[in-house]
Design a protein around this nucleic acid. Structure first.
Length: 272
DNA sequence: ATGACCGACCATGTCGGA
C-alpha cells in the first residue's frame, strides 16, 4: 500500500490550523508529523484534526514551546516518547503502524524536534549549542538508530535543525560559522545517520548540486526573491525501506500563505 | 547573517527560535 507521510514544523499548531487544513486538502497525507506545536496536550486542537480525517492522534506537548504531535488516518499499534540529555523537553514521539493500519510488516515513525542550538557556535560558552551536540551524540547511541541498523522498518522525520550538505544552504561558505551548518554539528548528524544506516529520502529524489530548502527566516524582507533558505527538515528511511520511496514534495508555496510558519511541509510517499 | 520577524506568556517586556 501507498503511505504518504508529511513532516512540518508549524510554529504553533493552534495558530496554524487553517494552514494545516489547506495543506491537508492539497496533499492528503496519511500521517502528519508536527513540530513546535507549542501547547500542552490538554490544549491541543484534537477535534479539528478529527474533522480533517485524522482520527488517531499521539501527543508529546508542553506549554509554550517545543512539542511534537502525530496525526494519522490509520490506527497506532504502539506509541512511545524518548527523552534526551536528562531533560523532559517534548522533542520526540514515535508511532508504530501495524496490521490494523494495513501493513504486512510494522513501520515505526520517529518524529523529532532537535534543539536549535542558539546563536554562538561554541559549546564552551553557549549551553544551547552544547545541548544540541549532546543530543546528537545521545541519539546516535540510542535504540532509534540501533533498531534501524538492525533491520527495523522505520522512518526518522522532523525538524533536525541542521542543514548538512553544501547545497542545503543558500551560501555554504557564509554559513560555516552559523549554527545549523557548522562542521561540528554536521559531522555529528552524519555520525548518527551512519549509525542507523539512514537513507536521506529527499536527496534521493533531488541530488546535489540542486538547492533544497525547507526554511526561510521571518526576518528576510522578501523571502521568495532573496531565497536565502536552509534544509532543516528531513525525511530519513531505515535500510529495510530502501527503494520504497515513490515521491517527495517540498511544499514551498506554504511559506507564502497568510501568517505562515517559517518552515514548510515535506511530503514523502512510500510503497510498503 | 536572515538581522526591516514571529510566537507564547499570570504579557504591554522577555525569552526562544535558527
Amino acid at each position: 500500500m501507498r503511505l504518504v507521510v508529511a513532516t512540518w514544523n508549524v510554529n504553533s499548531v493552534r495558530l496554524r490550523l487553517s494552514l494545516i487544513e489547506r495543506f491537508v486538502a492539497l496533499h492528503a497525507p496519511d500521517v502528519l508529523c508536527l513540530q513546535e506545536t507549542k501547547c500542552s496536550d490538554d490544549s491541543f486542537p484534537h477535534s479539528d484534526f478529527v474533522r480533517l480525517g485524522f482520527e488517531h492522534i499521539a501527543l508529546n506537548g508542553q506549554k509554550g514551546w517545543h512539542g511534537v504531535a502525530v496525526a494519522s488516518r490509520q490506527p497506532f499499534a504502539e506509541v512511545s516518547r524518548a527523552y534526551f540529555c536528562g531533560r523532559d523537553d517534548s522533542r520526540h514521539l514515535a508511532v508504530t503502524l501495524g496490521s490494523d493500519a494495513g501493513l504486512a510488516k510494522p513501520l515505526t515513525i520517529h518524529n523529532f524536534y532537535i534543539p536549535a542550538g542558539g546563536d554562538e557556535p561554541d559549546p564552551a560558552i553557549n549551553d544551547k549549542f552544547a545541548h544540541k551536540l549532546a543530543f546528537l551524540d545521545e541519539l546516535k547511541d540510542s535504540p532509534v538508530c540501533r533498531d534501524a541498523a538492525a533491520g527495523a522498518r522505520s522512518l526518522l522525520v522532523g525538524d533536525l535543525n541542521i542543514a548538512p550538505l553544501e547545497h542545503d544552504v543558500w551560501n555554504h561558505r557564509q554559513l560555516l560559522d552559523v549554527v545549523s551548518h557548522t562542521p561540528v554539528e554536521v559531522e555529528k548528524l552524519g555520525a548518527l545517520q551512519r549509525a542507523g544506516g539512514w537513507i536521506d529520502v529527499m536527496r534521493g529524489f533531488v541530488p546535489e548540486p540542486a538547492k533544497l530548502y525547507t526554511w526561510w527566516s521571518y526576518r528576510s524582507p522578501d523571502w521568495a526573491a532573496a531565497d536565502k533558505g536552509r534544509r532543516l527538515d528531513h525525511v530519513w528511511a531505515s535500510p529495510a525501506l530502501v527503494r520504497t520511496a515513490r515521491e517527495m514534495t517540498i511544499v514551498r508555496e506554504a511559506r507564502g500563505w497568510q501568517r505562515p510558519s517559517d518552515h514548510v511541509p515535506v511530503v514523502a510517499g512510500f510503497d510498503l
